[in-house]
Amino acid sequence: MSDQLVAPPPEHCPGTQSEMSGKSAACAGCPNQQICAAPKGPDPDLVEIEERMKSVKHKILVLSGKGGVGKSTFSSQLSFALAMNTEEQVGLLDIDICGPSIPKIMGLEGEVIHISGQGWDPVYVEDNLAVMSVGFLLDKEEDAVIWRGPKKNGLIKQFLKDVYWNELDYLVVDTPPGTSDEHLSIVQYLKTSNIDGAVIITSPQDVALIDVRKEINFCKKVGVPIIGVVENMSGFVCPKCNKESQIFIPTTGGAEQMSKDMNVPFLGRIPIDPLIARSCDEGKSYLISHPDSEATKQYNIVFNSKYRYRKKKKTTNY
């Protein structure tokens, strides 16, 4: 429904799925009023999404209530790590519509989407690692995406129903910060497709943890399982003396204490390493480029703890 609106919704729009849609005081004079007030039936696009997602075994959301905590970096390294098992097929979906950094991080700048008879073809990093992002639709990397909610939601829906991933073992979904349109849309559209859960990324300081608490509450309210919390940028280990320094001081116990307080799993800490940023700028896997680093060791601890539920059936080392 939302991608059929003829104008942006008003500020206090009750939402197209609300029982008051087209009937509340905020709807008076809105060009969308007749559309929203029309009888609502099942969205046929959701049936197509459910059918498309049947070929994806595991669906993992990467969330963060705060921007700048390394969520896209984590999404990329998780995808690289999963793809190191060449027997498994991995997809990375970037729904950060206004800030699509995944093409750069994955070394896919300048790539474009091709359309086949089966749908939109994702762009491949390796034979078993595919990526989709709005960044592939832009004429220039620096082009601004200035879209309101309905248009962003429409693109997310199109990514889910039209992208031909083939058979996937894992689909990692990189989301923007916050709890806004993109998050509500991805949860709504995948409601019947069995989301495995969300990995929530934070940094140690309180200014990030406050927003991450909101993200955890969002997951609980909309019924998304929380796989666990990762504390990123957790200290800096000097490559010469191996001494650790706290750059962002966890004044209230950091992500681990917050996880205990909110009764969610804590997966581990990843230290600051300038080479992680360099690997992302160069579109390379940090885990492969620096296999013996302290950060890679911590990434592997996080990834292995993250898939404990899976190891009951099969043990995998990354």
Rank of each mutant, 00 (worst) to 15 (best):
F80Y: 14
V90F: 05
V90A: 15
N128R: 04
K151I: 13
M132E: 04
D174M: 00
S133Y: 10
G149E: 11
T73N: 00
W120N: 14
I146Y: 07
G91R: 06
K140Q: 10
M132Q: 13
W147H: 05
A130M: 08
G154D: 13
S133C: 12
S185P: 01
G91W: 03
S79H: 12
L184H: 11
L184Y: 11
E167F: 13
N153M: 10
D143P: 10
E141I: 07
S75N: 06
D162C: 03
D181H: 07
F74P: 00
L92G: 09
G119S: 08
G149V: 07
L129S: 12
K140F: 05
Q188A: 01
S133I: 03
E126Q: 11
M106Q: 04
R148C: 08
A81M: 12
G154H: 08
D127G: 15
T86L: 09
Q188D: 01
D139S: 12
E126N: 13
E142V: 14
L93Q: 14
Q188W: 01
G107R: 15
I102Q: 10
K161E: 03
L92S: 12
E182A: 04
E141V: 12
P150C: 11
A144W: 09
S76W: 03
S116M: 13
G99H: 02
L138R: 09
V123R: 11
P150A: 09
L92D: 14
